[in-house]
Design a binder for these strands. Structure first.
Ligand code: ZN
Ligand code: ZN
Ligand code: ZN
Ligand code: ZN
Lengths: 136, 136
DNA sequence: TATAAACTCTATAACAACTATAGAGTCAAT
DNA sequence: ATTGACTCTATAGTTGTTATAGAGTTTATA
């Protein structure tokens, strides 16, 4: 049994994050020592790593909660997992497209000012004052 | 002089957002009518549209505050504007790269489950349980 | 003139996923 | 006995909004 500081080191999650996950019921309430310190076993390490892996893929806490619930019903069909992943992938791709458009506009804007101009003649500020291109 | 609801319609910013910008000192405190309603003129419309344009480019509130301050000192050099824009563009591009890597991993993960499997044999859940690929 | 609808006001909480802080308690070593 | 490292709870801050409650104002209608 390890304490929260060690769990933090082993998993790379901060101590506060671990306590936060407990409060959010992503991980079960830990056993306590006589002095009221949280105690964790190997299974807790595994579960926290699972959560960390999910978070590194930008899966949200509710999504992870759903995955954990499915993990607990091994006989169920995979359809729910797959639907969630598809939706999540869609959202990531939409965000990439959005940022890509944004990036083009920013570069265009940036080109409108050469260094050593004064603010008064600045193309960036002038363009920002003009009506934005519709982005819908 | 128009009231906040009309300013909201004209600019496309919500009423709460306008009040929020005032609290954050992005726009000046509006004049008030006898009944304590905020009153705006054409200049306020212009400034709010400027802010909206900036936000549509994901510029942060502090960044916009800096741009507005520069706008008020027309004799200054543009270097600060340019540095900020360069930094901002860098961050947007970094985020695009990050999401692109993420997307590849998500698609790989998604391929590891064909429909109609049970959760027990699910490649997605199994792979999420395994140690994540290092992404540094 | 009474009243209702539509608008506005302030203050406060929620969102997401943490991060940071304060103040107190626990434990191991000197 | 006391230091230092660790842990505990509770609370607030982050970012840019959005949503709500409860009260006041203005405009239109009966
Ligand atoms: Zn998602
Ligand atoms: Zn310039
Ligand atoms: Zn920025
Ligand atoms: Zn599956």
């Amino acid at each position: 049994m390890i304490k929260i500081g060690e769990l933090s080191k082993v998993t790379g999650c901060s101590v506060q994050t671990i306590r936060h996950y407990e409060k959010e019921h992503l991980i079960a309430s830990a056993e306590r020592s006589e002095g009221n310190f949280r105690l964790y076993d190997e299974a807790a390490v595994e579960q926290l790593l699972f959560i960390k892996h999910c978070r590194s893929l930008d899966l949200s806490v509710p999504e992870i909660r759903q995955l954990l619930a499915l993990n607990r019903s091994p006989g169920a069909q995979c359809d729910d997992v797959n639907r969630m992943m598809d939706r999540h992938i869609e959202q990531v791709e939409a965000r990439i497209q959005e940022l890509t458009r944004l990036n083009e506009q920013l570069r265009m804007l940036r080109r409108s000012c050469s260094n050593r101009r004064t603010v008064e003649q600045c193309g960036i500020l002038r363009n920002l004052s003009a009506t934005p291109v519709s982005s819908g």
